[in-house]
Computed example of a mutant assay.
Amino acid sequence: MQFSSSLCRGQLIRRYKRFLADVIHQDSSPEAPLTIHCPNTGKMTGCAEPGWTVYFSTSDNQKRKYAHTWELVENQRGDFICVNTARANLLVGEALEQKRIPQLAQYGDIRAEVRYGNEGSRIDFLLSGGVEPVCYVEVKSVTLLDESEGEMTGQGYFPDTESLRAQKHVRELIDCVNNGHRAVLLFCVLHTGIERVSPASHLDSAYGALVAEALAAGVECLAWRADISPGGMQLVQALPFDMHVNNGA
């Protein structure tokens, strides 16, 4: 996946009001920073430190209040992190079309954002055609890297805070399996420093318990990491998914 326009580079001053960030770039100053849109509603722990290098895209839509969108950040170790969570589904959709995820390559028909379930959800991808049963794929964007005691461990977590929405999606996947379908929880890792993934039970114990229940029911958990640069992104590597991690909680 290539970005539709060349990304501009700047330095983060602050992220605020969830959807806004102030940055310094070549045409601005700390006294008159550029305000850009932040397309991430999460806590963004370890993804939004003042002084870090940010990369943002520019839209030619004259109706937008903020023409620029925050796409990437580079941490102090040189890891690239994609903070635009909408990119996760685009990356997974591209990988599915190109048959680059072996466990899901046998399906001929790929549909996105299909309504399903008892709780009014939309599945990210519904796969069918050629094999049975149909497969429901829920995508989660992973950017939280464990930095306990100041060390980079390579351990990634989802979610980065309590998430009732994420809990609902796991319940829906369990129902899919119980109804005779295949269900996959696909963790799209958008942080180049993450080497393995686990549910963040220390931040959302209910979510951790639901994932354990889902695995026992037959829901599959996959983790794939993206190669990320200001030029573009692509899912390139399967990562281990570990249900139980000693996170010091």
Rank of each mutant, 00 (worst) to 15 (best):
R122L: 15
G129C: 13
E138N: 11
V131I: 14
E151D: 05
V134D: 13
D124P: 08
I123A: 09
V139R: 01
F125G: 03
E149N: 07
R122C: 13
F125W: 09
D146H: 00
I123Q: 03
F125I: 08
T143P: 02
L126K: 15
C135T: 06
L127R: 05
E138F: 01
E132N: 11
P133V: 12
S128G: 13
V142C: 08
V131G: 10
S121L: 14
S128M: 14
S128A: 14
C135I: 02
T153N: 08
L126F: 12
G130Y: 13
G129T: 15
T153Q: 09
D124Q: 05
C135L: 07
G150M: 08
V131H: 11
R122G: 10
D124V: 05
E149S: 08
G130E: 15
S148H: 02
G130I: 14
T143A: 12
G150N: 08
E138K: 07
S148L: 06
D124Y: 05
L144R: 08
E149G: 00
K140E: 03
S148C: 00
E138V: 08
D146K: 00
V134H: 07
V139Q: 00
F125H: 05
E147N: 05
V139L: 04
E149K: 10
Y136N: 11
E138D: 11
S141F: 04
L126N: 05
T143L: 15
D124C: 07
S121C: 15
M152I: 07
T143K: 11
S121V: 09
C135E: 03
S141E: 02
G150E: 07
E151F: 11
G150L: 09
E147F: 00
E151A: 12
S148I: 03
G150Y: 09
C135Y: 04
M152N: 09
F125N: 07
D124S: 11
D146P: 00
S121M: 10
D124R: 03
E149V: 00
F125C: 08
V137C: 05
I123N: 08
V134P: 10
C135S: 09
S128C: 10
G129R: 15
V137Y: 01
S128H: 08
K140G: 04
E149L: 08
C135F: 04
R122K: 15
E149P: 01
L127H: 08
E151Q: 13
V139H: 03
F125E: 06
C135A: 07
Y136Q: 01
G129L: 13
E147K: 01
L145Y: 00
V131P: 02
T143V: 14
T143R: 10
V139D: 02
V139T: 12
L126M: 12
D146I: 00
P133T: 10
V131Y: 09
L145F: 06
S141V: 04
P133S: 10
T153P: 06
L126E: 12
L145D: 03
V142W: 02
E132D: 11
S121Y: 07
L127D: 04
P133N: 11
S141N: 07
S128E: 15
D124A: 11
E151R: 12
F125Q: 02
S128I: 14
K140S: 12
